[in-house]
Design a protein around this nucleic acid. Sequence first.
DNA 1: CCATTAGTTCTTTAAATCGGAACTAATGAA
DNA 2: TTCATTAGTTCCGATTTAAAGAACTAATGG
Lengths: 129, 129
Amino acid sequence: MRPLFHPSVEDVTVEAILHALSDPVRVAIYADIVAQDCSLNCSNFLTVSEKAIPKSTLSQHFKVLREAGLIRGERHGVEVQNTSRCTEIEGRFPGLIRGIVNAHTIQLADVARRDKAASRRPAKRARKK
Amino acid sequence: MRPLFHPSVEDVTVEAILHALSDPVRVAIYADIVAQDCSLNCSNFLTVSEKAIPKSTLSQHFKVLREAGLIRGERHGVEVQNTSRCTEIEGRFPGLIRGIVNAHTIQLADVARRDKAASRRPAKRARKK
DNA sequence: CCATTAGTTCTTTAAATCGGAACTAATGAA
DNA sequence: TTCATTAGTTCCGATTTAAAGAACTAATGG
């Protein structure tokens, strides 16, 4: 089984990073990998935000993150261990990853706050047109 | 002629911002608008990096940037004046825009440096397969 | 050798993107 | 007013890209 492909840091592009992280499922995965700094296999993510995600889709998501240079995946027997490459990327694009992960955290908090407020409020009916 | 739609800052999402800026043409446009802090009409961008871009495509790009909350567009007679909303976004997601624009600048410099090095080097023929 | 587990690849279907052509709205000239 | 021009949008067909079920592969433990 041949090892997974990874671009070298100097081949990493801002566009690829932004594209990879512009998908809600992928940021969730990436944020998780960064948080526990490192290592999580694919199947740990079979559900993201209470929604089941087919593993073919998940496999593609990991591939996109890998090819954008955001994570490194090493096969260990039957499973792959993923680690974030954020120090490498920080070296080339200082502040980029931090800015994105931070923004994502803020947004998650905002959404949680809004949902909570909405559940305390009487059900708002659809606005008539 | 009705005014253009703009999301309020709290409705802006990280995903939409990253998606908007994951396109090379759109980052180029956005970086330009941010640089001259503000105002440029659509047709100033009919060519990006020596390549002509059809105006229907350009119109869509501006729409994506607008709806992501990155720029504000005001109609002045027949043309639209675009300004960046980066202070607003900075308020909600500190460091996000700076990180991205900065990374983009670094990448542009790297590409220029590489191209220059390549032009000084003898033409490298395609690797045989 | 077989069963199981973790991921990948293939294939079909659905959605997003690109760009040409036609259209609209504002402005200026005759 | 009417006509031409300019700036942008909208519509639509063609191409790209993404999603997910099914079939497949590779490693591991009986």
